[in-house]
């Protein structure tokens, strides 16, 4: 029985690895290696990579600035509606990104109920701008950071904080010198997850920010459009995105995440 079980588990593991690996192999087999460098010379490719990096890093930054306080509130505060806020936090994770994009448009678009005021009071119109791309990416990516950091805050040993404050440290000092170092692994893991989600973001971005080379066309959007006519360019862009993502995730994992 246990032998049969072991075979079953091994088969499952092999199938899981195959499922993850084979698409990557497919991509690499079709990569036009000889023309790869000339593809890089194309301004569309370079702009898309640049925009992807800018937008995903900005979205990760925004997720940290807004998400860490939210994670703190969810982990430490007791307030009415906390369960509701937590459910709201995870909503973008289950919502199809395109739906998220439409929702963003209906709220922050020129005719949206918030966007109308932004336009009238400040002359800000978000749709079709890089700001919209960053906001869309933050919308889908921030939940990953909040959930990871909240888990970190809940599982950390709070006696160190108590000790610090009994030794006279203020709240801010305690947070900065004791809490933050203790939850550093969750912060890094959460940031990496959020960033990875942001750089791969497609649906909410194309819906809310549109698609314009050099302005809002990130790599996933460029891949989607390149698929229409130029499969080689699409594959090249995909390989580039794969390489950037893998490099950064491996670096992060080696340096900051416990193994």
């Amino acid at each position: 029985m246990s032998r049969a079980l072991s075979v079953l588990v091994r088969t499952a593991v092999a199938l899981a690895v195959a499922l993850l690996l084979l698409p990557v192999v497919g991509l690499l087999l079709r990569t036009p290696w000889s023309t790869l460098s000339s593809q890089f010379a194309s301004p569309v490719v370079r702009q898309a990579i640049y925009l992807s990096l800018v937008a995903s890093i900005a979205a990760t930054g925004l997720s940290l600035v807004l998400g860490v306080p939210l994670a703190w509130a969810l982990a430490r505060w007791d307030f009415p509606g906390r369960r509701l806020v937590r459910a709201l936090t995870t909503l973008p994770m289950v919502l199809p990104p395109v739906v998220g994009g439409v929702a963003l448009l209906l709220a922050f678009g020129r005719r949206g109920f918030v966007g109308r005021w932004l336009d009238e009071l400040f002359g800000i119109s978000l749709p079709f701008t890089l700001g919209a791309a960053i906001l869309a990416e933050t919308f889908v990516a921030m939940p990953f950071l909040v959930i990871t950091v909240e888990a970190g805050l809940r599982s950390m040993n709070r006696r160190f904080e108590d000790a610090a404050s009994s030794l006279g440290a203020g709240k801010w000092t305690t947070f900065r010198r004791v809490t933050l170092p203790l939850i550093a692994p969750s912060l890094w893991a959460g940031s990496a997850l959020a960033w990875a989600r942001a750089i791969g973001e497609f649906g909410a971005t194309i819906t809310f920010a549109g698609n314009l080379p050099g302005r809002t066309q990130t790599v996933p959007l460029a891949v989607f459009l390149a698929l229409e006519t130029d499969l080689e360019a699409a594959i090249t862009l995909s390989v580039v995105l794969l390489a950037i993502s893998l490099t950064i995730l491996v670096l992060l994992r080696d340096r900051f995440l416990p193994r």
Binding site: G109, L212, P213
Partner: peptide
Amino acid sequence: NPVSEAGDAKGVVGPVALGEA
């Protein structure tokens, strides 16, 4: 100078019908 380039014919309609373009 467009603000966005749609991926198909229907992609032009959406933003205009919503009043965003």
